[in-house]
Design a binder for these strands. Structure first.
Lengths: 242, 242
DNA sequence: CGAGCGTTTGATCACTGTCAACCGTGGTGG
DNA sequence: CCACCACGGTTGACAGTGATCAAACGCTCG
């Protein structure tokens, strides 16, 4: 236990491998120390654990250090709607600020290491550190923007284009984390993908097989290899930057 | 001209009819004066005018005083996607913070009075006024949340439910502005509605006529009267709070 | 080893998009 | 002043994409 604690206390924003993706990105070393002093490391969470549930009191936001999370809401009639997948360096819980209760569930998709940040303290600190405030605004604004892009996707694109866009998006995000953008592990099930993209599981499954036949990708279970990123990007209606 | 100027200078956050919906909501009187000092009143804008276009340098965010705005993006293949409609007291331009360029167009739907707020100054001021910072965070967070709700709508609901939800949403927002929630003017065309909801114009038109036959609403041109809010809410999959 | 979940594949069907035609209105120019 | 056009809106006929229903298979985990 003490060894575990010492292990955790070794984790610091200053030395965190993904700090350039996370809140510290615009801060000087001395400022990062301030931020670090209010960040709490959490235990490692396992698949199926909840970061928070809809209705819980909003106290903190969460930064993913490793692993992945899905957030989803449940509507009156019980249907689940996945609102996002979160990768290392991304912040979860921002949609709770406006109402002081989390409006969604956050479920861990695979063993993950999470930092929790008390939001009141973060607010206070960001009044002292202009760079921190700026970054917070950027993260919030970026999330709005991402969702607007997703809206366009759901409104105007067919199944092929949605799935292609989804894969390209994931690829881009993995790459930004210095992981391969061509070969990675899907953290979510086909069913999750379908739910997120507004498609039936069966449709996603058919897309997987068809995209393989068309030599755009090759998949074994969750392990995906993007073999023709250019065509995939074209399909997605975005420009390929590799 | 001087009379126009004096007219404009009379407009102040302190006495603005919608200040309890807008940024000043959590501020003390003295603090509102600070805010007011950085807010610029703009000329009255007319239908078809642009607040900003995609690609423009991001300098300021805009608060609607009266009238209405639509924001939309244009994708590579030229299709337009409306991302939101904005009513008095709502803030436009927040999705530009993360990239320093507006990612969308903002077009005026009817003669509107708009306040513009230089964002850098607002950022600085919000480091002094905790209430202002809090409200900014809330507005940003609220926008994320609204969009997630919209996502659910686009992903999981059929045409009837989408249109019902759209009307209920508008009704609620008008009511919060002390306008009638039962009778109001739609600021946008059928085509806009369809674009926003991911439906063809023809489908929207058919919905209008069918909802009238079902005695849920009655519409003359843009003038809508919600006659059975309860059933409409049920259809929308939300709970009716009237 | 069995149960349950995740995945795949096939057959069918319906919602909604697309195409087409038409009406009314408002604006423009000859 | 009128003719014309552009635009917003409505209605009908038809077709296609993707949902739904059904069944079967392979993993994983208790």
């Amino acid at each position: 236990m003490s060894s575990l604690k010492s292990l955790h206390s070794e984790i610091k924003c200053q030395t965190c491998g993904i700090r350039q993706l996370c809140l510290p990105v615009m801060l000087a070393d001395a400022e990062i120390e301030h931020l670090d002093s209010i960040v709490q490391r959490k235990k490692i969470l396992k698949k199926g654990d909840f970061l928070f549930s809809a209705g819980d009191d909003f106290q903190e936001i969460y930064a993913i250090r490793s692993g992945s999370i899905k957030t989803y809401t449940i509507s009156a009639d019980g249907t689940e709607q996945i609102t996002g997948f979160y990768l290392p360096g991304e912040i979860v819980g921002l949609n709770a600020i406006s109402t002081s209760h989390y409006p969604s569930f956050a479920k861990v998709l695979e063993t993950s290491s999470i930092c929790s940040i008390p939001f009141e303290k973060l607010e206070t600190l960001s009044r002292e550190l202009a760079g921190l405030q700026k970054q917070l605004f950027k993260v919030l604004s970026g999330e709005i923007r991402d969702e607007q892009e997703l809206m366009m996707l759901l409104n105007k694109k067919n199944a092929d284009e949605r799935f292609a866009a989804f894969l390209i998006n994931l690829s881009t995000r993995f790459k930004r984390r210095n992981l391969s953008g061509h070969e990675f592990l899907l953290p979510m099930t086909r069913s999750d993908i379908g739910n997120y993209l507004g498609l039936a599981v069966e449709t996603v499954s058919r897309l997987v097989t068809r995209f393989q036949k068309q030599a755009l990708i090759s998949i074994q279970e969750r392990h995906i290899h993007i073999t023709d990123k250019h065509k995939l990007s074209e399909l997605a209606g975005t420009v390929c930057h590799v």
